[in-house]
Design a binder for these strands. Sequence first.
RNA 1: CGGGGAGUGGCGCAGUCUGGUAGCGCACCCGGCUGGGGGCCGGGCGGUCGCAGGUUCAAAUCCUGUCUCCCCGACCA
Length: 548
Amino acid sequence: MHRQSSLLLPTERQAPADAEAISHKLMVRAGLIRQVGSGLWSWLPAGWRVHERVVAIVREEMDAIGGQELLMPVLVPAEPWKRSGRYGIDELFKLRDRRDAELVLSMTHEEVVTTHVAQIVRSYRDLPLILYHFQTKERDEPRPRAGVLRTREFIMKDSYTFDRDAAGLEEGYRRHIAAYDRIFDRTGLEWYRVESDVGMMGGLGAHEYMAPCPAGENEVALAPGYAANVEVASAQARPVAELRLEGELHTPGMTTIEAVATHLGVDTGNLLKAFPVVTETRGLVTVFVRGDHRINDIKLRNALGEPFRPAEADELRGPAGFLGPTGTGVEVYDEAVTPGRYVAGANRPDYHVVVEVPGGERIDVRAVQPGDLVDGHPITVEPAIELANIFKLGTRYSEPLRATYLDEEGREQLVWMGSYGIGPARIAAAAVEQFADEHGIAWPRSIAPWDVHVVALGQEGELAAAQALGADIEAAGLSVLLDDRPLRPGEKFADAELLGCPLRLTVGRRALESGQAEVQVRRGRESRDGIPLQGGAPAVVELWRSLP
RNA sequence: CGGGGAGUGGCGCAGUCUGGUAGCGCACCCGGCUGGGGGCCGGGCGGUCGCAGGUUCAAAUCCUGUCUCCCCGACCA
C-alpha cells in the first residue's frame, strides 16, 4: 500500500500554459509525467506504474503467442543501417564515438535483430521464431507534440517474426493480430485495426491499431465493416449530375475550382482539377482529379511507384489555374473521373473549356472524404492516435543483411520477416484522452496506477480505519493508494479525481459512525453502496471487477 | 523547413509600449482558527527577469546576437 503523504505525486491546479492536448494537460497536472526537453519526458512514479501495467499486458500476450523476450541495445553501429538502406532517414540520430566510428541510435531494431538471426539461424529447423523486446527508441522528430503522444524518445515493444516462407509469415502475422486484439481489449480502450501504408519500414502489407480521439494525428475512414487510414483508404465518390454546358467558357481571373463552379453554376464535381507533378523517371506528369476531390500524396506516390514533387510554374504547359488536358505528355486520371464531360482549364488565361474525358486507364490517387461510399454506406473520417503498427516485411531486411537458412534440400533460402510495434506511452495517453472528464483522468481498471484509492479524512480513528481497510483490500489482491495527508477533504477529492483511480473509498467521520466507507466509481463519478470497514474487501474486489 | 507565439520564484501571470533596481494569485514554511468538495486570519522563505554583448548615470524594459520551449503546417512509426 502506497501512502500519498510520502509519494512523489506533484499534482497541479493549473495545466502548463502551452499544453493543448487533454492528455498532455492532465498527465502533467496529475503528476504522472514531467518534461525534460522538447519531446523528452520523465515518467514520475504514478505515471510509470501506468506505463508498466501496459507493458505487463503486452508481455503476457506476446508470451502467449510464443514470443521470446530479449534485449538489444539502443546505440548500435551504423554499418547495418547502411546495408539496409535506412541510414539516410532524417529521423535517425547519427553520432560518432571517440575513435570516430559511426553509430546510430536505433529507431527500431530490424537491423540488429536480423543481424543476429543471420548469424544464429542456420536451418529450417531453427524456424519459426518470434523475438521481442521493450526498448527505448530514438527519433529526431521534426515536431514533437502533445505531451507523450509524439516524442523523440519512447519505449516501444517491437517484435519480429522469422519464417521460412510467405505462408509462415502469414501465420506469424495472424498470431500478432490475435495478440494485439487481445491487448487492446484488455487495455479498455476504444480501438480499431485499420489498413495502413507501409511507410519507411517497407514491405508487403501493414495494419495499424488506432484509438479514436480528438488529439489524434491520424485520420481514419470508417464505414460499417470498413476501417482504413486515410493514407490508403479507397471509397466510391458521390455521384455528380451530368454537365449541361458546351464549348469554351470565359472565366476571367477565376483560378480556383470554387470560383469557376460558382460562376458557371455547376457542381464542383463537374470540374477537372489538374495537379502537375514531376518525377525522376517520367518528368512532368499531369494528374487529373474531380474538382471536388483532393490528391492524396501517399496514394499518388504509391500509384506512381516513385516519389514526386509538385511542378514549378515554369515547368507547366499552360498558365497556372487554367490547366487542362492537352492530349500530349503524360496525363493520368483518378478513378473517380468517370468518362464524360467536364469543365477543364483551356490552357490559356481566363478560359475554361468543356472536355470529353474518355474511358481508359485510371489510378486511385484521391483522398477519400466524408460522404464517399463503401458498400453503399457513407464513410466518416475521424482523428485517431496510432497505438501500434504491424508490417509484413517479407525479405526487405533479410536480403540486404543476408538472413538465410538451408531448407530440406540443402538450398539457401531467405528468411521471411514481420515487424510488430506497440507504444505503451501512447496507450496510456490515449486512455487519458478517451476517458477524461472535467475533473481529471478516469483510467480503465486494467491500467490505472492503483486499483483503489482510499481517502482518509481525519488523522486519528479515520486514518487507522482507512489503513486497515486498505490492507485488507491489498490482501485480497488489489493495489491501494492511501491518501493519509493532513489536508482538507476538498483537496483530497480533487486530487483523487485528477489522478483517476477507478474506485475511491472515503473513510471519514461518517464512515466511523456507520461502519461503512463511502464508494465512488471514478468513471461517471457515480456513488455506490457503502463498503463495510470490517470484512469489506471481497465486496470491493467484486465491485472493482465490474468496472470498465 | 515555412508561419505564429512565449521565456520574470515550483505553477499560472502582471510589469516591457513610456528605462529608475521586481509584483500578484496559487503552492511552500511558522502560528492560530477551522474540519465532508481546493476554507479563513496573521507572519515568513523564495526570483541578479533564458543567455551573451551593446546603449545609458541607470536595463526585466531599448538595440544586436544567440539558446530554449509551445502552437499550426510540411514531414513522420
